[in-house]
Design a protein around this nucleic acid. Structure first.
Length: 264
DNA sequence: CTTCTGACA
DNA sequence: TGTCAGAA
């Protein structure tokens, strides 16, 4: 009987616009959406005008604008003043899309690598073919050292999403080890040549086991009569521990000069 | 039964 | 942002 033109209650408005009643009251508190009037029992009532207004607020909010800015948009600002805000919103959502794409790629990579773990029996030696592998230097340290907290702190920030990446340890002859990541952006610090490589994948729980496996790798190479030259490459894939708690995943590679003489 | 306000995590 | 209590 008190409905003059078919106004609706806050919960009806909420359902209509797919938001919570709490949110509608919040907008009111922030001074961007007043009810058409408030009725006898203090109920807020809303009409078409408020519905359109709320629709606008929701659009602006989707663009990532703060309630503060929305307030200005809907009151003071001219079309010319609002336009740059939309350009900014466009740039922001493009950035967000890129972020989500990266996220997607990493998840896909995880699943591919997981499948490879299941495929290859632990501890097998294989021969693999590569295209040239460009690597970007992260930092260098002594071969006897390991990647510890201090090293991480010293060289933090240079590599975004470090723990989603394959960390390449390149042990050269001079007793130093270079820490590299795969950076495809054209510029690289080290180019591992295309060709055949002896490969050994392994899982360890601590550094002693890792060192043991490295010795074993050398021994195996020598015993089989492989002619290996160049640095030893060790690839750490820390994210694979997601599948096997307490186990660290590494791959050892060494360039193979005489692949034709090799018998499996 | 619905909404309001205020408080809290 | 969701939830909850107490009141209207």
């Amino acid at each position: 009987m008190n409905r003059m033109q078919g106004e609706i209650t806050i919960s009806e408005l909420a359902k209509l616009m797919q938001v919570s009643t709490h949110q509608i009251r919040y907008f009111e508190e922030k001074g961007i959406l007043d009810p058409a009037y408030t009725g006898e029992n203090q109920y807020r009532m809303y009409g078409m005008h408020e519905i359109y207004r709320l629709a606008h607020i929701l659009l602006l909010r989707k663009m990532g604008l703060s309630v503060q800015v929305i307030q200005e948009c809907l009151s003071h600002l001219t079309a010319e003043q609002i336009t740059p805000l939309f350009h900014q919103a466009l740039a922001n959502t493009e950035a967000e899309i890129r972020r989500l794409q990266e996220n997607k790629h990493f998840i896909e990579k995880l699943l591919v690598e997981k499948a490879q773990i299941s495929d290859i029996e632990e501890g097998t030696f294989t021969i693999v073919q590569w295209e040239a592998l460009p690597l970007k230097l992260w930092f260098e340290m002594q071969a006897a050292e390991s990647l510890n907290v201090q090293k991480l702190m010293q060289h933090q920030g240079k590599i975004p999403n470090l723990f989603e990446k394959d960390i390449h340890y390149v042990y050269n002859d001079s007793g130093r080890v270079g820490m590299y990541t795969q950076e495809g952006q054209g510029s690289y610090d080290l180019l591992l040549p295309a060709g055949s490589y002896v490969k050994r994948t392994l899982m360890v729980q601590n550094e002693e086991q890792l060192n043991a496996h490295i010795q074993e790798f050398y021994a195996h190479v020598e015993q089989r009569g492989y002619m290996c030259s160049g640095p030893l490459l060790m690839v750490e894939k820390s994210y694979l521990s997601l599948f096997t708690p307490d186990q660290l995943h590494y791959e050892l590679f060494s360039y193979l000069a005489n692949p034709e003489e090799v018998h499996v």
